[in-house]
C-alpha cells in the first residue's frame, strides 16, 4: 500500500513533464514532426508536456535518429545529465532499429536502446504527430506515476 504522499508525488509528476529533443544524426523528419506537435492542431502543451530542451531541467529525453559514431559518447553524457526520475522515448524507425541507414555500407552504431536504456519506442518513418502525441501521453505519465513504488523496490533490492 503506497502512502498518500507517494501517490500525490506520482500524480504531480505525471502532470508536469518537461521534454528534451535530441537529434542524434537523423534526417530531421522526426524532429519537425515533433515540432509540429506544438502547433494548435496537436498541442502537446494541453497535456502538461512542455518543450524545454535543457537536459538538466527535463524529465523525458525524446531521441530521434540512428546514433552516429560521433554522437555515441555525447548521448551517454547527455543521458547522465538528466535528473531522476527520467524516461527515454525513441521516436522513428531510425531510433528504434537504425532504420534505412542501418544496412550494409551505413555508418551508424545501431539503435538507441544499445546506447542508453529506452522506455518506449514509436516506429514509423516518420511517425505522424498524432502517433507521437498518443505515445507520449499514454506512456510517460504512467512511468512517472509508478516511479515511487518502483524506486522503493529498487532500494529494497539493494538493501
Amino acid at each position: 500500500m503506497r502512502s498518500l504522499l507517494e501517490r500525490l508525488k506520482g500524480f504531480v509528476r505525471s502532470r508536469s513533464i518537461h521534454v528534451t529533443v535530441v537529434n542524434t544524426g537523423g534526417c530531421n523528419g522526426c524532429d519537425i514532426e515533433i515540432l509540429a506537435c506544438y502547433t494548435y492542431r496537436y498541442d502537446l502543451e494541453q497535456y502538461g508536456i512542455y518543450y524545454h530542451n535543457n537536459p538538466r531541467k527535463s524529465d523525458v529525453l525524446i531521441v530521434t535518429g540512428p546514433v552516429t559514431y560521433q554522437w555515441r559518447e555525447k548521448l551517454k553524457r547527455l543521458y547522465r545529465k538528466v535528473p531522476e526520475p527520467k524516461a527515454v522515448v525513441a521516436v522513428g524507425a531510425c531510433a528504434c532499429s537504425g532504420g534505412i541507414f542501418n544496412q550494409n555500407g551505413g555508418r551508424v552504431c545501431g539503435p538507441v536502446r544499445e546506447v542508453i536504456p529506452v522506455d518506449a519506442e514509436v516506429p514509423g518513418c516518420p511517425p505522424r504527430p498524432e502517433e507521437i502525441v498518443s505515445a507520449i501521453v499514454e506512456v510517460v505519465p504512467r512511468l512517472f506515476r509508478s516511479w515511487e513504488s518502483r524506486r522503493g523496490e529498487a532500494d529494497g533490492a539493494e538493501a
Partner: peptide, 19 residues
Amino acid sequence: QPPALEITDRGPVVHRERC
C-alpha cells in the same frame, strides 16, 4: 538487424521497427 521484410518459413514477416 533483420531486413524490414523478411521471408521466413511461415511466409513474409514485417519488422515494424525497421519499416
